[in-house]
Design a protein around this nucleic acid. Sequence first.
DNA 1: CCGCATCCCTTTGGATACTG
DNA 2: CAGTATCCAAAGGGATGCGG
Lengths: 118, 118
Amino acid sequence: MATKVKECSSNAYNLQVLATSCEVNEVLEKIGSRWKMQILHSIAHGTQQFSTLKKAFPSLSDQVLGKRLKELVEYGLINKAIVEDTVPPQTIYSATSKGTALLSIIHDLHMWGMKEWD
Amino acid sequence: MATKVKECSSNAYNLQVLATSCEVNEVLEKIGSRWKMQILHSIAHGTQQFSTLKKAFPSLSDQVLGKRLKELVEYGLINKAIVEDTVPPQTIYSATSKGTALLSIIHDLHMWGMKEWD
DNA sequence: CCGCATCCCTTTGGATACTG
DNA sequence: CAGTATCCAAAGGGATGCGG
């Protein structure tokens, strides 16, 4: 959004370098929240219900899960669909193409991390 | 380190998926701290002194900068060299190959973010 | 020039409990 | 089953000021 103020410096320095390094923060802050990428990953791999996600991450609390799901939907990384013709109605989450594209980069990051740190 | 306890779930679920999604967090938490990637990026592009980094990011305080630099050194992403034969002695930071490799992934992430969000 | 110590404030994540 | 409301503890980041 053009309205968002980016409070990075500029001052007669290498603008190109700074502009680039500035925006990285925004991306990292958006995807870096705890559990977010794991949740996205799990959804993309078939864990698509609230309850199953809870089981998958026992140390993750309900409201954090709810919060993350909401953010992921807002960012357009996952879709939320409600299946009405079951009792009770089910909510199904699925990764969007945007989410899948992000995951492939996150996967590279993960591979790098494992190679360097494990 | 093998001593680090990974408190992710497992329980008869898809172990492969969970193991993968678990470790992503560690990587993200290591590199996701505010300013860290920007600092790494700036160092890799020639801003290699404490004072010039400060000028590059006016809204970044000294002790956060110091902390980040320390972490980056600990992770082996940058090197710290002290030039003794100048007065006063200079401290020069430079990116390691490990740091450069990480930056290329971060760059992809940045490109993705700009494409999707800006 | 290169940082660290201290204090403080904001943000984030989690526990408990309750609804449609 | 799928969440939300409220409260709380912990961590992270920043301001100020000082030392090597």
